[in-house]
């Protein structure tokens, strides 16, 4: 046994340690999620992230070192975002069918999804960096990360905002649909996907396949719309340099 190199330093010289840790936390988190009978208020990703954060704190591995190794996984986000073009293509017939109401609803709803929270945060005195980090809160993660980098926000905070938004969207939609007497799965699904991105979409698939299809539609369209317009709008207002 060589005592001159600490074991942790030795292990973290290879990215495989960070990759292995991530895989373990993900699998354990998903398993625990199934065991808890899939609670809607505690998504699998939150369980896994808590496990991973706990593990890093326990073994004393700095986040920056972990993140460096995990790049081997996160680099795949690029092709994974491109892959979303496939479900988008598969839903084209549905988009065409409802193009008029969706074309009216989507820009307004997707804009407001960002604006309400931005306005509230701005009124409460949040800094520009925070505003830039939460602006894409209703957009699916791979697209939102790209948007936030454009705006000059913090990816970690964005992902936290995504988590909170996705989780809170589920009870919000069930409350709001009760108030407005809406029982149409298409509407509920679209609202879940538009506001609650992937987390809302997973929930919609639990309601019905129709709700799920409309949720992924809402998620993709919000992602594209926000990705194209938010950075332009941000530049126009003159924020983020």
């Amino acid at each position: 046994m060589s005592a001159d190199i600490p074991l942790l330093t030795l292990l973290t010289t290879t990215p495989l340690f960070a990759v292995g840790l991530t895989l373990a936390a993900y699998l354990l988190g998903s398993g625990l999620f199934q065991r808890l009978k899939r609670p809607s208020w505690l998504p699998a990703i939150l369980i896994a992230a808590l496990l991973l954060a706990g593990a890093l704190a326990l073994i004393g591995l700095p986040y920056a070192t972990y993140q460096q190794g995990a790049t081997w996984l996160t680099v795949l986000l690029g092709p994974a975002t491109v892959a979303l073009g496939m479900p988008l293509y598969q839903q084209l017939p549905r988009i065409v069918e409802l193009w008029r109401p969706l074309a009216i609803c989507l820009p307004i709803a997707a804009t407001l999804a960002a604006c309400y929270s931005l306005a509230i945060a701005w009124l409460l005195g949040s800094t520009d960096t925070i505003l830039a980090s939460i602006a894409a809160k209703s957009v699916t993660a791979p697209i939102a990360i790209g948007i936030t980098e454009q705006l000059g926000g913090t990816t970690a905070l964005l992902l936290g905002a995504l988590l909170v938004t996705g989780v809170i969207t589920i009870p919000c939609v069930s409350l709001a649909s009760r108030w407005l007497h809406i029982e149409d799965d298409r509407l509920i699904g679209f609202a879940l996907g538009l506001n609650g991105h992937a987390i809302g979409t997973v929930r919609a698939f639990e309601i019905s396949p129709t709700a799920g299809a409309f949720a992924s539609l809402g998620m993709s369209l919000t992602g594209i719309f926000t990705a194209v317009l938010l950075p332009l709008a941000w530049r126009l207002i003159g924020m983020g340099g």
Binding site: A53, Y63, L73, T74, A80, I145, A156, G160, A198
Partner: peptide
Amino acid sequence: AAQPLIALLAMLIMPGVVGVFFI
């Protein structure tokens, strides 16, 4: 290629999500 990648999206964003606990 696309189907497994989309299924793994949650795992791919996890390293970033964990960052929130450190800020």
